[in-house]
Amino acid sequence: MTEIALVVGASGIVGSALTRVLAEHTNWKVAGLSRRPDLAAGIIPVAADLQDPAALASALAGLAPTHLFITTWSRQASE
Score class of each variant (00 low, 15 high):
residue 3 E to S: 09
residue 5 A to Y: 06
residue 6 L to K: 11
residue 6 L to M: 05
residue 7 V to L: 05
residue 8 V to H: 08
residue 8 V to T: 07
residue 9 G to R: 02
residue 9 G to N: 01
residue 9 G to S: 00
residue 9 G to E: 02
residue 10 A to Y: 01
residue 10 A to P: 03
residue 11 S to A: 10
residue 12 G to F: 10
residue 12 G to M: 10
residue 13 I to G: 15
residue 13 I to M: 15
residue 13 I to F: 14
residue 15 G to N: 05
residue 15 G to T: 03
residue 16 S to I: 04
residue 16 S to D: 09
residue 16 S to K: 11
residue 16 S to H: 15
residue 17 A to Q: 12
residue 18 L to Q: 09
residue 18 L to M: 07
residue 18 L to I: 02
residue 18 L to C: 14
residue 18 L to E: 07
residue 19 T to F: 00
residue 19 T to I: 03
residue 19 T to L: 06
residue 20 R to Y: 09
residue 20 R to S: 08
residue 20 R to V: 03
residue 22 L to G: 04
residue 23 A to V: 01
residue 23 A to R: 13
residue 23 A to P: 12
residue 23 A to G: 10
residue 25 H to Y: 12
residue 25 H to L: 11
residue 25 H to R: 15
residue 25 H to I: 03
residue 25 H to G: 14
residue 26 T to D: 04
residue 26 T to G: 07
residue 27 N to E: 13
residue 27 N to A: 13
residue 27 N to H: 15
residue 27 N to Q: 15
residue 28 W to K: 11
residue 29 K to A: 05
residue 30 V to G: 03
residue 30 V to H: 09
residue 30 V to K: 09
residue 30 V to W: 08
residue 31 A to K: 12
residue 32 G to Q: 01
residue 32 G to Y: 00
residue 32 G to F: 01
residue 33 L to R: 03
residue 33 L to M: 08
residue 34 S to Q: 02
residue 35 R to V: 06
residue 35 R to G: 12
residue 35 R to W: 02
residue 36 R to Y: 05
residue 36 R to I: 00
residue 36 R to G: 00
residue 37 P to H: 13
residue 37 P to T: 02
residue 37 P to F: 03
residue 38 D to N: 12
residue 38 D to G: 11
residue 38 D to P: 05
residue 39 L to T: 00
residue 39 L to Y: 04
residue 40 A to S: 07
residue 40 A to K: 12
residue 41 A to P: 14
residue 41 A to M: 05
residue 44 I to E: 14
residue 44 I to S: 02
residue 45 P to E: 01
residue 45 P to V: 04
residue 45 P to R: 06
residue 45 P to L: 02
residue 46 V to F: 04
residue 46 V to C: 07
residue 46 V to K: 12
residue 48 A to H: 03
residue 48 A to E: 05
residue 49 D to H: 14
residue 49 D to T: 14
residue 49 D to Q: 10
residue 50 L to P: 10
residue 50 L to W: 06
residue 50 L to C: 05
residue 50 L to D: 03
residue 52 D to M: 12
residue 52 D to N: 13
residue 52 D to W: 11
residue 52 D to S: 14
residue 52 D to I: 02
residue 53 P to I: 04
residue 53 P to L: 03
residue 54 A to P: 13
residue 55 A to Q: 13
residue 55 A to K: 15
residue 56 L to F: 08
residue 56 L to A: 07
residue 57 A to Y: 01
residue 57 A to N: 11
residue 57 A to H: 06
residue 57 A to C: 10
residue 57 A to Q: 07
residue 58 S to F: 02
residue 58 S to P: 14
residue 59 A to Y: 10
residue 59 A to S: 07
residue 59 A to M: 06
residue 59 A to N: 06
residue 60 L to E: 08
residue 61 A to I: 03
residue 61 A to G: 05
residue 63 L to S: 01
residue 64 A to K: 15
residue 64 A to C: 11
